[in-house]
């Protein structure tokens, strides 16, 4: 398809990405979220001082997919581990990458208190309303009525309660400098999500406190739909339950053009 006509490169794989192929299922938006983080680290020139903290869950092998230093946390403890790293290496850029089971269930205490302390870290939170790695069990963010392998009749709110809206909760923390919910269900929203990730890292680089981007994400395999149908599910089912928005933006970040 190349011609002798001069051409410019519009897009190529970010250098903060490793050469490894991911273990994610086809169409899983974890890959998009990873790629956006890598692109932002490239653009901000942070790769050489970045330290990532991988979670337990589908993203457990995230450290294989980035071309930068990484550690692997116990389930839910990534914000505590990131705290330990950031406190002894304050000049480094420290971020966690966590799913909804990791962050909003077993790791609820760690995320809340990292935000309360204004821990100067960046959290990328992939919310796909299900436990992916263990094969599709009910998560703290599973929608009412949604069928999973551990809510086979659909999530019954009388028995299993309601989904947790983490961003709204964390935005109440004074220590939080940036809390935004974005979505990965179409190109326009992916572009917005990337800007949010950029601002979340800018928050850390400026020392403005805890920053989190919640990304509404898909799990085609465990939702038992095609990748494209999964994106539709996000748009039609998840966005109404988890409204997109900037829940807390530090004034200095609000002024920033990215």
């Amino acid at each position: 398809m190349t011609t002798s006509q001069p051409a410019t490169l519009v897009y190529q794989r970010p250098t903060s990405f490793s050469e490894a192929t991911t273990h994610y299922c086809p169409g899983c938006t974890h890959g998009i979220a990873h790629r956006l983080v890598a692109e932002v680290l490239d653009e901000m020139g942070l790769r050489e001082k970045a330290i990532g903290v991988a979670p337990v869950g589908c993203a457990v092998f995230a450290y294989n997919y980035f071309n930068l230093d990484f550690v692997e946390a116990a389930h839910g403890r990534a914000p505590a581990m990131a705290t330990g790293i950031k406190r002894v290496l304050p000049e480094n850029t420290v971020f966690t990458y966590q799913g909804d089971g990791d962050l909003a269930s077993i790791g609820m205490a760690e995320i809340m208190h990292a935000a309360a302390r204004g821990e100067n870290i960046t959290v990328i939170f992939a919310n796909n309303a299900i436990y992916g790695m263990t094969g599709g069990q009910m998560a703290p963010t599973t929608l009412p009525g949604m069928k999973t392998t551990s809510s086979p009749y659909g999530r019954d709110v009388e028995l299993a309660g309601y989904p947790i809206r983490v961003s709204e909760m964390l935005a109440t923390m004074e220590g939080a400098g940036y809390v935004v919910r974005a979505s990965l269900h179409d190109p326009a929203h992916i572009r917005k999500a990337k800007k949010a990730i950029r601002r979340a890292f800018e928050t850390q680089e400026r020392g403005l406190g805890f920053a989190m981007v919640e990304l509404l994400s898909s799990c085609p395999t465990n939702w038992k739909v095609t990748p494209n149908e999964a994106l539709e599910f996000i748009a039609k089912q998840m966005v109404p339950a988890f409204p997109l928005g900037d829940f807390k933006v530090h004034p200095e970040i609000a002024k920033l053009r990215v």
């Binding site: 490169l9 897009y11 794989r13 991911t22 994610y24 169409g27 998009i32 790629r35 890598a38």
Partner: peptide
Amino acid sequence: CPDAALTVY
């Protein structure tokens, strides 16, 4: 693209 498989010119 979830797998950064594309280069665009």
